[in-house]
Simulated scan of single mutants.
Amino acid sequence: MSTAHEVMAADTAEHNWSADPYADALQAGHGPLFLRRGDGWLLPLDVERWCAPADAVDLRILDRCEGAVLDVGCGPGRLVAELAARGRTALGIDISEAAIAHTLRLGGQALWRSVFEPLPGEGRWNTALLLDENLGIGGDPHALLRRLAELLLPGGLLIAETVPVDVDERIDVHIVRGADAPGTAGAPLFPWARLGTPALLRYARPLGWCAVDQWAAGGRCFVALRSRSTSSSAEPPKSTAVISSQRARKPSPDRPVAEG
């Protein structure tokens, strides 16, 4: 027969997992983890790949990056860490505190912040990355692409990962750790989008983005775009000191998450 202490410990463990299944999956380094729509539709999230070192497909993407790199929705930070190991100026941003902590442990620079909040180096980043389902952030591709154009230098490079089929979908989802996991029914819904390459280009062109390449590798699809070019004398972020001074928790833009 279970003691009261054992029952309380089990309840606490279940509550912690259900409160943030994404954070628990990052800590464990694996799923199962899904985005779940109200009708029960499930999109599996590739936690194992996100938590592993950058693979061959990732490395080819990073080879394309120019200058200072902003990784939007950096997750556990494999790409930022790889760029840092190469001596590149790079910053990851994510709304998950657990993801930011993981990135910092890997040696990458990262901020606990939304892409729609004020960021260091606005208008001076050379490259932005929008990989690993992150084209869906905010559920509004038009707003996301417009915001990225604000963050990049004129003529800056965006590398985005698209869904490998022609889809243009805006949905409300929540994160669950399994199809029938207890304790997830009340998880908060948030807006998300899923775009194939044709849909991304339809949103991008009216905003001045120009597609410069499209490719597929490892079962994944990618598009490289350049933002509208205008004259500008702004200099790109050059020093990791500029970035490290901005390591912040989301509620307090100037307080460090972890000491460098």
Score class of each variant (00 low, 15 high):
Leu225Cys: 05
Ile171Asn: 01
Ala23Cys: 02
Val212Asn: 06
Asp58Pro: 13
Pro198Glu: 07
Pro251Ala: 12
Trp50Asp: 02
Arg49Leu: 04
Ala181Pro: 04
Phe116Thr: 09
Arg220Gln: 10
His15Val: 15
Gly121Ala: 04
Phe222Trp: 08
Ile171His: 01
Ala216Gln: 10
Arg228Met: 11
Trp112Met: 07
His102Phe: 06
Asp168Thr: 13
Pro251Gln: 09
Ser244His: 12
Thr162Phe: 01
Pro141Trp: 07
Glu117Arg: 02
Leu131Ile: 13
Asp20Thr: 10
Asp24Cys: 03
Ala149Phe: 05
Asp46Leu: 02
Arg88Asp: 09
Tyr22Leu: 06
Ser96Lys: 03
Arg113Val: 06
Leu119Met: 03
Pro154His: 07
Asp213Glu: 10
Ala52Met: 06
Glu6Arg: 03
Gln214Ile: 14
Ile137Trp: 04
Glu235Cys: 13
Asp166Gln: 09
Leu157Ile: 12
Phe190Arg: 03
Asp94Leu: 08
Ala149Asp: 12
Glu66Ile: 13
Ala179Phe: 03
Leu144Gly: 00
His5Ser: 13
Trp112Thr: 04
Leu189Thr: 09
Val57Tyr: 02
Leu119Thr: 07
Glu6Gln: 10
Arg146Thr: 15
Ala68His: 07
Phe34Val: 12
Asp172Thr: 10
Trp112Leu: 07
Ile243Ser: 01
Ser18Glu: 15
Glu122Pro: 11
Ala241Leu: 15
Arg177Tyr: 09
Asp180Ile: 02
Gly75Met: 02
Ala98Arg: 12
Arg202Asp: 15
Ala4Ser: 11
Arg247Ala: 14
Gly67Ala: 09
Lys238Met: 09
Ala90Asn: 02
Ser229Val: 15
Ile243Met: 04
Asn134Tyr: 00
Ile175Asn: 06
Arg177His: 10
Ala10Pro: 09
Ile137Arg: 07
Val7Pro: 10
Pro256Ile: 02
Ser232Glu: 14
Ala9Thr: 06
